[in-house]
């Protein structure tokens, strides 16, 4: 059988972990802000955040290719400040994953914040807690299931990234070849054995993630 390189699987896991961590940090304040905003601001913003859910990956890939170009802004700025070009690089894949998976993190968080009674925040404010303290000691502990759902869903979804990565990844062996692309390549090259190994591992991984979500949901209900 064609020899199997586990690099793409590790890279996929790494990109998924980094993107999930960054998304968590971005989405937590954003989701909170959105639930506090007036409807005219909130719903357009929420719609924007959900665009990656409905747009074809090719649309994202096309725009990212233009945005990443070091020839013009913002790619030129990124290159000047951080000395990286986003196209064909791992930072670029992370940026793509963040945009691609944004709805999967922000939506559970928004419903999490909404499910909390307003009284919680109000009482804490009256007790003199700062917004950060409220977030850390009141809100987050009370919406753990929603946060976990967001994290696991985002992670899962990033594992499945293919179209965007194919358009902006440049398929550099050992650097930007994700597991999904490795499957595609092996199938195209008629190496079905290798394709089976990658696909099988991805199936098991995705199944475990989803199982985690369902178990968490069950626990969450009990806690409530």
């Amino acid at each position: 059988m064609h020899s199997i390189d586990f690099g793409p699987l590790w890279l996929t896991l790494r990109i998924a972990l980094i993107s999930t961590a960054i998304l968590f940090c971005i989405c937590l304040p954003l989701a909170f802000k959105l639930t506090q905003s007036r409807p005219w601001l909130r719903y357009p913003m929420q719609a924007m955040a959900n665009l990656p859910l409905v747009l074809p990956p090719t649309v994202l890939g096309f725009y990212l290719l233009l945005l990443f170009s070091p020839e013009r802004l913002p790619g030129a700025w990124v290159k000047a400040v951080f000395h990286v070009t986003l196209a064909f690089s791992q930072p670029g894949l992370v940026v793509a994953s963040i945009i691609f998976s944004l709805p999967f993190m922000i939506n559970p968080m928004i419903s999490g914040f909404e499910s909390l009674p307003r009284v919680l925040t109000e009482e804490a404010t009256m007790d003199g807690a700062t917004p950060w303290q409220i977030m850390a000691h009141v809100l987050i502990p009370n919406m753990r299931p929603a946060l976990m759902a967001g994290i696991v869903l985002t992670f899962c979804h990033t594992l499945g990234e293919f179209g965007v990565a194919l358009m902006v990844g440049g398929k550099i062996p050992g650097k930007t070849v994700l597991a999904s692309m490795a499957v595609y390549d092996e199938v195209e090259s008629l190496h079905y054995g290798a394709a089976h190994v990658y696909s099988g591992i991805l199936c098991v991984l995705a199944l475990c993630c989803l199982l985690t979500i369902f178990l968490l949901n069950r626990k969450g209900h009990r806690a409530l």
């Binding site: 290719l65 170009s69 020839e71 070009t85 196209a87 064909f88 194919l166 440049g170 398929k171 550099i172």
Partner: peptide, 20 residues
Amino acid sequence: KLVYGENISQVSQYILTGNV
């Protein structure tokens, strides 16, 4: 320095968008 396109058209896009 090498970057691989799916086919020759994707290479053209990479060149024309200034990404390579």
